[in-house]
């Protein structure tokens, strides 16, 4: 009996999980109640329960409790408001580095992606960077009487897989709907730095350095054809800043803002 009492909440929980969301698009269920299943006989020794006491009296709801009950029965997104499947995506981004206090890089990038599914796309991405020397270079040189080594990045070209496992919507100032998704990306490609060209040539003379990257971000969809993108991407590549220094794995971490235009501009809705 104790075991049954302990298992009762779990049973109720599993029953609740069978209906993760409240589908308001369905017509209301019929008011006719099905025939009650025959009740199993009470176990020997058990007291027969009064029908009125079988269901405890409902406690008055405190302010907000109704909201709590309703809130999470309604799915976060009933129907997706933005579909990407089989759509081409052309984007522009503006990255800036967040992990180099001495030589900061500002860039401009482009992206061409094809969405095979709503949650997966393959993208070709490229960026070009301008390097800006910060005041820390002078401070460091004056204090330590030494040079500060840097790998001067010129650009990159990457092939990325983009996975968008999370989809949702937000309220903008409590009234307007904005759909969004969150994505992860990973890819391979090439980074061109100052050592990629003459006179040094670098580890890969005359060409780029092999590179790998991972990242993530969030995209908002204010219209059927537009996405606003904010993300962080980390790129790793081997480089040798000076001939006398050892080759090391360079880390280029950029935060970027951008936008993307989807083709075709509209889509036909299909239930996900």
């Amino acid at each position: 009996m104790t075991l049954l009492l302990l298992l009762a909440p779990l049973a109720a929980l599993s029953q609740a999980q069978e209906q993760p969301g409240l589908d308001l698009s369905e017509p209301p269920p019929s008011q006719t109640s099905p025939e009650k299943a025959p009740q199993p006989p009470p176990p020997p020794g058990a007291k027969p329960r009064d029908a009125g006491s079988a269901r405890p009296a409902e406690a008055p709801l405190a302010p907000g409790e109704r909201d709590v009950a309703l809130g999470d029965r309604v799915k976060a997104v009933q129907l997706k408001g933005f579909l990407k499947r089989r759509r081409l995506e052309l984007g522009i981004a503006f990255p800036c580095t967040v992990n180099d206090a001495f030589y900061e890089k500002l860039g401009v990038g482009g992206k061409l992606a094809y969405n095979f599914e709503d949650s997966f796309a393959l993208a070709v991405r490229g960026s070009y960077f301008w390097q800006i020397r910060s005041a820390h270079v002078r401070e460091g040189q004056a204090a330590f009487s030494s040079q500060i080594l840097t790998s001067r990045v010129n650009g990159q070209a990457m092939l990325d897989g983009i996975w968008s496992p999370v989809y949702g919507k937000v309220a903008w100032l409590g009234s307007r709907i904005v759909h969004f998704d969150m994505y992860l990306l990973a890819g391979l490609g090439s980074v061109w730095s100052a050592t990629s060209s003459t006179p040094r040539g670098g580890p890969f003379p005359g060409g780029g350095h092999a590179a790998a990257e991972v990242g993530g971000g969030i995209r908002f969809y204010p219209s059927n054809w537009l996405a606003l993108d904010a993300g962080v991407i980390g790129t790793l590549y081997p480089d040798q800043p000076t001939a006398s220094a050892p080759s090391t794995v360079q880390k280029l971490i950029v935060a970027q803002l951008g936008f993307a235009v989807f083709f075709p501009f509209s889509f036909e809705y299909a239930r996900p």
């Binding site: 009933q78 129907l79 408001g81 933005f82 904005v178 759909h179 204010p222 219209s223 059927n224 936008f259």
Partner: peptide, 14 residues
Amino acid sequence: LAPRSARGSAADVF
């Protein structure tokens, strides 16, 4: 880039 003109998609039946 703030979604000033953000709107619910016509696909959202709710």
